[in-house]
Design a protein around this nucleic acid. Sequence first.
DNA 1: CTGAAAGCGCTTACAG
DNA 2: CTGAAAGCGCTTACAG
Lengths: 337, 337
Amino acid sequence: MVTMQDVAERAGVTKQTVSNVVTGRVRVRPVTAARVRAAIEELGYTPNLVARSLATGTTMTVGLFVPTVASSFYSEIVEEVEDVLERHGYHLLLCTTRLDGERARRHLAGLSSRSVDALLIAGDRDLIDHLPLLADARFPVVLCAWENEAPELFPVVTIDYEGAGHLAGRYLRGLGHERVAVVASPAHTVRVAGFRRAFAADGLAVPDTAVFLAPEPTPEGGFAAATAALTADPRVTGVFATHDVLALGALEAARALGRSVPDDLSVVGHDDNAEVRLCRPALTTVAIPKRQMARQAVELLLRAIPRTGPQTATLHLLRPDLIVRHSTGPARRRSGN
Amino acid sequence: MVTMQDVAERAGVTKQTVSNVVTGRVRVRPVTAARVRAAIEELGYTPNLVARSLATGTTMTVGLFVPTVASSFYSEIVEEVEDVLERHGYHLLLCTTRLDGERARRHLAGLSSRSVDALLIAGDRDLIDHLPLLADARFPVVLCAWENEAPELFPVVTIDYEGAGHLAGRYLRGLGHERVAVVASPAHTVRVAGFRRAFAADGLAVPDTAVFLAPEPTPEGGFAAATAALTADPRVTGVFATHDVLALGALEAARALGRSVPDDLSVVGHDDNAEVRLCRPALTTVAIPKRQMARQAVELLLRAIPRTGPQTATLHLLRPDLIVRHSTGPARRRSGN
DNA sequence: CTGAAAGCGCTTACAG
DNA sequence: CTGAAAGCGCTTACAG
């Protein structure tokens, strides 16, 4: 391996001078710099980043925890984060936790051993119990895409999920829907609460019996839950699925039960998930600005790197947005099947 | 930051002894070891991995290049790779190249500066021109998911894509299809060649005029190409889409043209892509063992880490597998519309 | 603007 | 089984 010392000898200077031209922090006489650069070129020298890290105490690497990468929600976050990092010269260390808290903890323990300049944790419920481990980490931590109880240890950049549910509810209300059902993932209580608030504003209740849980965030789960919902109360004219993938299953269920969407039944999704864009009828859904959220989160994180001392646990909420497509329409009263 | 020296003083030993109990390489007297461990606990000592890396010349980090993470094909590869790495105590440094060769080159240049113990490059055509940069890297490199001209510099673990196309073709032939069309991504020439071979075996040609390119691997692209194909020759009874996502568009196109699948038209996809599993009719497709490929590739890579000297550019080909679902059936002769 | 010294925190032979 | 020394390759004040 060719070292700075080798370059120095070749160029007839000391290694400090080489360091100066490589880092560019100190001005070096142009002639000398040129000679050094030539030597670097000839020897094919490339600085040892590990040695630099040890000397500077900085790794130019940011860790990112996500539950998975096999969903467009998180994969878009990963790509957005990587874009910002690369623009700032940082590398990305990726950990997916996969519903495995123990694995998450191990990874966390590994990271805290000083191999990362900062850590971004995206929606990682697998990690929630282990977050206190980071309380006195020597690097900044930012949380994003956090729907529920984010511990007030670190800054959080997330979506106004309650507002998102409310948006869906208000829209359905505006179309005249009164009897509705919710197809939800167990973790989406906040979205459901927002949805309910929209109905409550008009004196209408969305009872617990109108909320059907899908244990898995899959079309199959949505299908089962929606089938249960539409069977339990055939007079339902609107369904809010707290996740587009569940909505996909709801559309299937409607088809299977002979309910035509949107004439007979309106379906609203949540996320504006890329892989669902192709379903028919095109899904009306609540879009959440995930890329913007990711960008804002890393930028906040990067700004915190030089800073020392504890971070303030600020909360940044981004606004969701309703995208009306073809799965929703005015309510039509239905007879009891 | 608490250092090994601090622990040593606390435990009344030298830091070498601390190092010995931490790494476990050298046996330490149990009493001493216990005292050291207690000191570590009390002080909350955690070893500085950067310092260790500088001393050992090893980072316990593996780099992974993928074109994108926003496709189930690559996201599954990423997760599989990460699983193997984590099992071996390695971290994952992720780079997505996003069709940007210049960005890929920058990342590569960054990595080669000694921050990674090994490098896995998955299907990264963005990188192909820059691969020679790695020719004399000080760490092993393995290529995987490489369909076309993989440079013979490194071991390659990939799929028998030609065999995959052949599988699709032979299956369609077995169902009696004679007039077929191919909806292909421009990069999928190998799959198309395999498909053709199956027809050629029966003395049947699949002319260039029966191959319709979709510039983008999207359902829209597949829709356009399939529409063109079915319009150009209405007597076509079978379509091979070189990518499931294109097949999705082909199904739409068939619907739009009043062709019922599979009675009127058979459609075969490629990849067994997760996000396509929900389409109707369920897609017959050529499944490729991507997780197995990814696993084999990292394991090969990991085994190469201790080794010095150039690697041999071996080629490992995995076999694809046909999955018959409901989008294919026996050929029925069609009149000229 | 350039050179000599110390140090980042660890590991690895090498003596005792 | 434990201790003293050297070194991994860089950067950072600090003199000249």
